[in-house]
């Protein structure tokens, strides 16, 4: 398990009869930048809270950096840095005071690192935290995380509320100083373009369930949009068809892999394949979430239903 930073098995969290997390099994490789994606309310923050010991799972189990959640919580917290969505710290303290306050909690703290990053991130160390911009607050968090010597950074919606220049600076620091040396970064977000830029692994959840977990490069090399003229092919022998839309003349298929074999199958059926093109993360995200809705809205036959409903 040494190569897995976060592992969960069939994790469940029920809040007053609502399943916020539904049998979630995650595998976050050590050293990866893992984009934890889902729309608002998909269960991202609930999952993170369980991992950090801020909420108790209703069922299932999890380990973080090899330590069991709910048993070795101190060991987990010593090695983990968490940047919450609202980026709240003691507002009246300056960054310098926050450093002095924080260092005592962490056995691996490095004053050298704190000084070095304060300089390279250009943080005004003597200004109260509340007076700092959102972008600078994020940098203070990153400084504390790096000085703490964290092996795992959990960033909950880190770019929300940042202007484009601050986002750009955040991504630069992530690439230059944060990623590497075996450090794992979990970024929970619905800002797909930011995640697409830095993540190497993706976990996509909706309604508390995992829809897709894979290397981002593999997802991009395998998902394809296939356009064809001719009869709709509802089922395929060679691949998983994520969605089908048709206007009567043309059909658009999103397939998860083996697009070439699928195109050959279409040609065999007498259709003319006009295009096979790659998809961006945003389109893949939307297709996967939509597919989930077709399947959960009572249409057991999923794919044919999507064909007929769009005529």
């Amino acid at each position: 398990m040494n190569d897995i930073a976060i592992w969960t098995e069939k994790l469940v969290k029920v809040y007053s009869q609502v399943k916020a997390v539904d049998e979630l099994s995650l595998h976050v490789p050590r050293g990866s930048v893992y984009g934890f994606l889902g729309r608002n309310g998909a269960g991202k923050t609930s999952t993170i809270k369980i991992l950090l010991g801020l909420a108790r799972p209703t069922a299932g189990q999890a380990t973080v950096l090899g330590f069991r959640v709910g048993h070795d919580q101190v060991a987990i917290l010593e090695r983990t840095a968490y940047v919450s969505e609202n980026k709240a710290l003691y507002g009246n303290l300056t960054a310098k005071e926050l450093v002095r306050f924080t260092r005592g909690f962490y056995p691996n703290w490095s004053d050298d690192a704190a000084t070095r990053y304060a300089r390279s991130f250009e943080i005004p160390m003597d200004r109260p935290f509340v007076k700092l911009s959102q972008g600078t607050r994020t940098k203070v968090y990153l400084l504390l995380a790096l000085a703490q010597g964290a092996d795992l950074l959990v960033l909950d919606e880190p770019t929300t509320g940042l202007d484009p220049v601050a986002v750009d600076e955040f991504l630069r620091i992530l690439g230059q100083d944060v990623v590497g040396e075996g450090r794992t970064v979990l970024i929970s977000s619905h800002q797909l373009s930011d995640v697409e830029q830095v993540a190497d692994h993706i976990g996509l959840i909706d309604h508390g369930r995992l829809l897709l977990e894979a290397r981002l490069d593999d997802i991009k090399s395998q998902f394809r949009l296939v356009t064809a003229a001719g009869n709709a092919l509802a089922q395929s022998r060679s691949t998983e068809v994520v969605s089908v839309t048709s206007d009567g003349n043309f059909c658009k298929y999103v397939v998860r892999q083996n697009a070439e074999a699928f195109a050959a199958e279409l040609r065999q059926q007498g259709a003319t394949v006009t295009d096979v093109s790659p998809l961006g993360l945003r389109e893949i995200f939307l297709e996967m979430v939509r597919k989930e809705e077709v399947c959960t809205s009572g249409n057991a036959a999923g794919i044919p239903a999507a064909v007929s409903s769009s005529f």
């Binding site: 750009d168 992530l174 230059q176 590497g180 830029q197």
Partner: peptide, 12 residues
């Protein structure tokens, strides 16, 4: 690391 920082992408 330089390329990663310049392009704002993951060094991996």
């Amino acid at each position: 690391r330089q390329v990663a920082a310049d392009l704002r992408i993951n060094p991996n």
